[in-house]
Amino acid sequence: MTAFSLNPEQIAWCAELRTLGDERLRPLAEKGEPGRVNRPLVEALGELGLLDRLFAGEGPGDRAGGATSGALGLCLLRESLAYACTEAETALALQGLGAHPVAAYGSARQREQWLAPARAGHSVAAFALSEPGAGSDAAALALRAAPDGPSAWRLTGEKCWISNAPEADFYTVFARTTPGAGARGVTAFLVPADRAGLTGTPLDMLSPHPIGALAFDGVTVTGEDVLGEPDRGFRVAMTTLNRFRPSVGAFAVGMAAAALDATLAHTAQRDAFGGKLKDLQAVAHQVAEMATRTEAARLMVHAAAAAYDRGEPDIAQRAAMAKLLATEAAQYVVDAAVQLHGACALQRGHLLEHLYREVRAPRIYEGASEVQRSIIAKELYSGPSG
């Protein structure tokens, strides 16, 4: 059920994606090692043409169109994959986040050398924005790009909480080229992983996808490595985040829907107090609340994505609202599902044990819930009546 009135093509595509996720991608995900890049899974996403969909219409030669394209198509893709295989969804999203700046701002050479293999699943991309002292406050970046000649810099500093690090093949790195200029003094660079002076270490996180830290010890970059324009890198970062924030909400909706369906099945067949769990009013009302929050989140995500596709001016506010509502709702739904399942949901390998670990991180990454509230408030007060 969806009140967004998806057309038959979109509904059929979502069903196809769930089947692909369950039958083609989940077996590959189960063979992967937690905390490591699953390259066979990334390659399968490329072979199935799913990575291509991340970049349609983002650069020269790319054509967007059709009921399953654009930001809404991305949300349907992420929601459907998340329902069936969160590992596949995460691998797809991380590839998109890391390579989108190349698709949108890269030169012809950068796109040919790095984007083409990323779209095919043959190379792994990463988005390197966060730092030990600058996570949510992206304008406070400290990674220094010191001038080294007329059109070259040396990168010195650290990045932290970087998905796909340290195993990615290339990184979109945001560094400070003009000290004291805040968001106006940041430049985006495409940095190959084998560049001299770049090292990384994996971090052991609650969520099973790969995350690491990067150290830059005088890493040389030149004008050919710049994405967009010098000192305009904050725009590159925000454009990418605004593109993907609603779809983070779609990831959350997919997890919530999976938890809801598991709960409906469990409470309908579980014997308790002379009947089924669903016959208890407290349980039925809880499930109704779970369903309502899931559907409300889905509608806001779809609305934000559709607004992005139409080029409406309030994208930042809509994207923030969608991510905030959906990730908070998913946390509630998954937690309630665990409670209604009881001890069995806490067993390693149970769907809900997996979702319980996965659902926590989206409330933090790509802007924590508190940051989304600040964005929303800023947009509200800057409006006509603000």
Rank of each mutant, 00 (worst) to 15 (best):
L48M: 08
E43I: 09
D62E: 15
L351S: 11
R373L: 12
V219S: 01
Y332R: 12
A108H: 06
E370I: 09
S5G: 11
A152T: 11
G311F: 03
A64G: 03
A91M: 05
R154A: 09
P34A: 08
F234L: 09
V191T: 01
A322G: 11
A291E: 09
W114A: 08
L74V: 10
G121V: 02
E167D: 03
R144Q: 13
R109P: 07
A215Y: 05
V173W: 05
A316R: 13
I375W: 02
F189D: 04
A250Q: 07
R119G: 08
E112N: 13
Y308R: 13
A3I: 14
C85T: 03
T220G: 12
A361Q: 12
T19L: 14
R184L: 08
A118K: 00
H100G: 11
V283F: 02
A128C: 10
T199P: 07
R24K: 14
K323W: 03
I11T: 15
G65R: 09
T201F: 05
G275K: 08
R360Q: 15
A306L: 13
M290I: 01
V359W: 07
I211Q: 07
S136L: 13
E16L: 07
I211V: 14
G197N: 02
P8N: 12
K159P: 01
P230M: 11
V338T: 03
P208G: 04
H122R: 15
E9F: 10
D271I: 14
A326C: 11
N38K: 04
S107C: 05
H285S: 13
F170P: 02
L155Y: 06
F189V: 00
Y83H: 05
A303G: 10
S369R: 09
A12D: 13
P246Y: 05
L346A: 14
R298Q: 11
L50C: 12
G106V: 01
R363C: 15
T327D: 02
L214E: 06
G133W: 00
P246H: 04
V301A: 05
P192G: 03
P210S: 06
S80T: 06
M255V: 08
G106D: 03
F244C: 02
R195Q: 14
E58Y: 09
L129D: 01
G383E: 11
Q331C: 12
P147F: 00
